[in-house]
Amino acid sequence: MNIIIVDDDSLVAGALKTILEINPDINITATGSDGQEACELYRRYQPDILLMDIRMKNMSGLEASALILKEFPDARILLLTTFSDDEYIIKALRLGAKGYLLKQDYASILPALRAVFSGQTVFGTEIVARIPQMLHSSPSFDYNACDINERELRIIELIANGYSNKEIASELFLSEGTVRNYLSSILDKLQLRDRTQVAVFYYQHK
């Protein structure tokens, strides 16, 4: 797993590099110190995951995420910050970031990286508990009008609750391939890009 770390605190970046490289399946390809450098490093190395701070000088992690995801829609970006700020979390979700973790929760970083690498979206426990309240701003949505059937709606609910395709398949007694087909159909019908946007859409229209 090739990872780029970007943090304007060189001590934090160095500590993360040291901690993560103890694991034989992880290679820290490069480190950077601001959003502009994150964009340049991503273009050069195209890592499996970009682990990036949010608040940085010159260009923030959110600004860099927007630029990178515009150029590389499949980029896996895991945001790491000391600030549990609702506005940042919502922006990260809407941008399509694959995760948002608090730096204080060091124990969760390695499992989060592996989960993101496997295709999941991850958020710290404290953040997950607050997402519904943060995004609950619109009246109930008529999924029938978008031709979303009961099975697809159930899959949307499970995605919003953090289930992976494998877990959804187990819950609904389906194959993972069938779940992927349902997800593709859901994305097409709701005109969304990925499962993170599905979760955001669900909580906004709950």
Rank of each mutant, 00 (worst) to 15 (best):
A112F: 02
I26E: 03
A107S: 15
E21S: 09
T31P: 09
K103A: 05
V128N: 13
E150I: 08
K91N: 15
E157F: 08
D53M: 08
R195T: 14
E71D: 13
I168S: 02
D25L: 05
M52E: 04
L16P: 11
F123S: 05
D53Q: 06
Y45G: 07
I109P: 06
Q191W: 00
E150N: 12
E157D: 11
Q133M: 12
P111Y: 01
L50W: 02
L67F: 13
D147M: 13
A145Y: 12
I19Q: 13
A199Q: 06
C39A: 06
T29M: 00
S33P: 11
I127D: 04
D34V: 03
E71W: 00
K206Y: 11
Q46S: 12
L187K: 10
K206S: 10
D105Q: 10
T31E: 11
Y45P: 14
F123V: 05
S140N: 12
L80N: 07
F173S: 14
I109Q: 06
L67D: 11
A75M: 03
S164F: 04
G124H: 02
L79R: 02
P139G: 07
T178E: 12
Y88R: 01
E157P: 09
Y45W: 08
R44E: 14
R76V: 00
I156M: 11
I159A: 02
D85H: 12
S60Q: 00
E87H: 11
R195E: 13
V116D: 05
S10K: 15
I168K: 07
N23M: 05
R193Q: 13
R130Q: 13
L16M: 11
I168D: 08
L190H: 04
D34N: 15
S10L: 14
M56W: 00
S10C: 04
L69P: 04
R180H: 07
L183H: 09
L62M: 03
I19E: 12
T82A: 15
G14A: 05
L41R: 02
P139M: 04
L158S: 04
D9Y: 12
S185R: 13
L80V: 08
L93K: 03
P73G: 04
G177W: 08
G162L: 06
D188H: 15
I54L: 00
E152S: 02
D142M: 06
A38I: 03
L41K: 08
H136L: 06
L69T: 01
I22G: 06
L174Q: 10
I54N: 07
V122Y: 12
F123L: 08
M52D: 02
R94L: 03
D7N: 08
I49Q: 03
R180N: 13
L135K: 07
K166H: 13
M56K: 01
D194R: 02
Y143K: 02
E21I: 03
L187F: 01
P24D: 15
K189R: 10
L153C: 07
D86I: 04
R44L: 12
N2W: 01
A75P: 10
L153H: 06
T125L: 13
I54Q: 05
T178W: 03
D53T: 06
R44Q: 14
L51N: 00
N165D: 14
Q191M: 11
I28N: 01
Y163C: 09
T29K: 09
Y100C: 09
E171S: 11
L192S: 05
S84V: 12
